[in-house]
Amino acid sequence: MDREILRRLEKLNQLQLTEEQKDSFLAFYAKQTEEMAILDSVDTESVERMVHVMPIYTVVREDKVIKKYSREDLQKGAPETTEGYWQVPRLVE
């Protein structure tokens, strides 16, 4: 991990760190990767990945309308709206 990779990560995640925070992050990342040796000490080549800790039962179900919110309700928390739409800066010139 270097500052260039960190810059790309910031861009990807739409975040910016201060210079001091960048130094802290790099130290944190170095510690995490160093500690990962404990994971490498466990042979997992023949181990199947475990995404869910319990079996999943309700992924697929019939579609049905159970509650309906108005456009106004859904936009109550919006920072800015115009004529019933979320307002953002112009995307296309």
Binding site: M1, I5, N13, L15, L17, F25
Partner: peptide, 18 residues
């Protein structure tokens, strides 16, 4: 996101992304 998120959260996001 930069103005609203605290440092620990930003760190976790960037680490997770990596």
């Amino acid at each position: 996101r930069t103005e609203a998120f605290g440092e620990l959260l930003k760190t976790a996001i960037l680490f997770g992304s990596e």
